[in-house]
Design a protein around this nucleic acid. Structure first.
Lengths: 150, 150
DNA sequence: TCCTTTTGGTTGTACCTTCAACTATTACGG
DNA sequence: CCGTAATAGTTGAAGGTACAACCAAAAGGA
């Protein structure tokens, strides 16, 4: 019971902490940041919308709206996928690249401060296993991000 | 890094799972449910708005809006606090009590299914400590819920 | 080949959360 | 006491997310 209440509290509070740091320092939500980060690590900094949705654990409608807003700010650009005319590719622009580069240190510091650095190395390992088990239960078919596959 | 990516995924996905079960079966968001649950366990099923906000890890404006909507549905009622004329008390109505009673089993089952039952007893203990440490970092002054105090 | 289904994605609406502004009451310092 | 600050709470607007409906292209089957 305590475990669940605490986890519920983390679920409620942690996103707010991340969001407000990023919004204050970069006018980005945590989800915006995550989208840019996933693109920045992709080959050619380009990803199909579906793949990007998977990696960011988002639904396609949500991603579509977010990418549109990022596109309006010239952080990302969209173009039709050559191989599949149904698909859309999202690519990080030069501006977007600068943005993520400038924003990453502060965000990483925030994550360290509130999560990583308050845990022992053993706890980090435990957390990896625990979240892995939960994700497997939440997303049994592995439709979503593969970061948590054992 | 893996630990953080997985935790971020849980942060993103788990709330959606809880919300959709509750919305489907009871037309309640997880936060709505939590508000009703905290009231149901309080003495006289009554709590001051500030206290309720603490226990639900919410800001006062958010809680105020939510309680108003719950009040419109006659699940909760508000009345001025006798001891402090600034304060407002929220009390669970009979209807609200029935609602939470009827809804709890399904919700508990969902939580078990996606969190509790996929973890070993040792992992539950570990999770309690880990979330405790994170909450202490997120909320150093202990302004919020006391459920996670050691 | 043609028709149906599935996949990929966008759009509009409704709802919820956040933020800032505002009111009312209590507590505090001189 | 009086004036100021702090506390308790509400409200309205702005922005983000979810859901459903929708369109277009590709895949599959007869």
């Amino acid at each position: 019971m305590t475990a669940w209440l605490r986890l519920a509290a983390v679920l409620e509070l942690l996103p707010g902490v991340l969001d407000s740091q990023l919004r204050r320092d970069a006018e980005l939500s945590h989800f915006d940041y995550f989208v840019l980060a996933m693109l920045s690590e992709a080959p050619k900094r380009t990803l199909r919308m579906t793949a990007l949705a998977q990696q960011t654990n988002a639904t396609l409608p949500r991603l579509s709206h977010v990418v549109k807003r990022l596109e309006d700010r010239s952080l990302v650009e969209r173009f039709p996928c050559p191989e599949d005319a149904r698909a859309t590719n999202a690519r990080l622009t030069a501006t977007g690249w600068k943005k993520i580069k400038a924003t990453a240190p502060g965000h990483v510091e925030t994550v360290r401060q509130h999560v990583i650095d308050v845990l022992t190395p053993e706890q980090i390992t435990q957390l990896t296993d625990i979240t892995g088990a939960i994700l497997e239960a939440v997303d049994p078919e592995g439709k979503l991000s593969s970061v948590y596959r054992r």
